[in-house]
Design a protein around this nucleic acid. Structure first.
Lengths: 250, 250
DNA sequence: ACTTGGTAGACTGTCTACCAAGTGCCATGA
DNA sequence: TCATGGCACTTGGTAGACAGTCTACCAAGT
């Protein structure tokens, strides 16, 4: 039973002002629960999501589920067909490509601005993350590597100081992580060398160089994805899934 | 009475397949009605939006209004304060700046991809828009100029063939247009010269040049905004608005 | 064999009513 | 003047109802 535990949305406050734990709206919890289930595959691609079913599953009423589904629809996680329901989005062939292209633009610009605004403190944290990430990488800890990678990229976008870039990049990043999970481990070695060069450029305030490196970095990722895609083509129509139709219960 | 006329969402179909007019979900109509009212100033910045009030105003129940408000909140048009209501978002000082910076990144990349993929047909349409826009500009038709400008930019992003860039750019663009309306007319002259150079670069398939021009173009816009902002500083606290409080009806 | 028409079931979209909890405001009182 | 308590208002969430619509399926007709 995946019942929602209305946990507090622990966001890192600006240090000092500590808001008392305010219960997150249910729709938020539902949203998070659903994205998680989509990412980890509990809700398979193409699956028909029924409001009451999800509501029962999560122990809430239809309303919060509806609201969460609509947000998921706006962000491209599910496709809402009026009068029928929501289907977990099935990524098109070229979608990952476009996603990575968009990410390249967003993160490259973020890196440029990060280089412009970097404080000593920021740079220190970047260096730390690089070190940790490389360590994970050498130790073969894939989970840790992926997580640290995400943290590094996230920190850089936040250093840009541009709320919109942060938001967009975060959105894109989650999507990428969903489509992309199997690919991530492949190119760990080169990745962290690039991160190091990137951090160096940022610490020197070299905007153009930082942007350039970030762009190439993302581009390499895209290539890696394509190579892996090419080496495993027979993933076509993996759609047996006869369990989707539910028996008539009469 | 701004009652909603459930109009068809006329999207340009891929030519040939003509879907019959399907009634849009109410929440969608409400969403559009509200953004429109926000942009045109019917709902002033900082105004307290009450669900039942809007519902009455639009002739629908709370439900669609709630759903629309949540979407507006997600996209930054309003700020939702739990237990109190929604306020029309009041842009912060640096927000326009960040918005324009994000737009620069998105549209610059779009221009690059547009240059890569441009078809003869596309280029022809771009040229046409340039011509029309310049004509409006010279005729002093501000409304037409602004509209054509938007169309041109929109077409370029669409030419990128990247759905995510299109979506993000569209979102940013609407916000910019809201904050920015008074500034738009100021710099019409130079703007269309830049557009012409841009279209030329795209038609020649010169990616770097297209991206470069687009970036400078957006940057000029940002500067224009700042100049205008500096020349009209006394817009501070224009908040008399005593009509916001409603009499207690008992 | 293929199309047409009808039927049934399942879900969504929307409305209504209702309650609990949180928020902001105002008047009272020190 | 300033804090306190109370009150009205608003959202957040639940429940139930109903129409419209989408899907699938079956049967009859061509």
């Amino acid at each position: 039973m995946t019942t929602i535990s209305a946990g507090p949305g622990a966001g890192s406050e600006p240090a000092g002002v500590r808001h008392v734990k305010r219960p997150q709206p249910l729709r938020e919890s539902v949203y998070e629960a659903l994205t998680e289930m989509i990412i980890d595959g509990t809700l398979e691609r193409g699956r028909h999501l029924v409001e009451v079913e999800l509501a029962g599953m999560l122990g809430v009423s239809r309303q919060p589920v509806r609201e969460a589904l609509q947000r998921l629809n706006n962000e491209g996680w599910v496709d809402l067909r009026p009068g029928f329901g929501a289907m977990v989005h099935v990524p098109a062939e070229d979608e990952v490509d476009q996603l990575l292209a968009a990410r390249a633009a967003l993160e490259s610009e973020s890196a440029r601005l990060a280089a412009r605004h970097a404080s000593k403190d920021d740079v220190a944290r970047l260096r730390e993350l690089c070190k940790v990430g490389t360590a994970y990488q050498e130790a073969g800890d894939i989970d840790g590597t992926v997580r640290t990678n995400a943290e590094l990229h996230s920190l850089i976008t936040q250093m840009s100081g541009n709320r919109f870039l942060v938001d967009f990049a975060a959105q894109v990043d989650r999507r990428v992580r969903w489509y992309y999970t199997p690919v991530a481990p492949v190119r760990g070695a080169a990745s962290w060398r690039e991160h190091n060069r990137l951090v160096k450029a940022i610490s020197e305030g070299d905007e153009d160089k930082a942007a350039q490196i970030m762009r190439e970095h993302t581009e390499h990722t895209r290539k890696a994805y394509h190579d892996l895609q090419a080496s495993t083509p027979p993933a076509e129509t993996p759609d047996p899934e006869p369990a989707r139709r539910r028996r008539r219960t009469s």
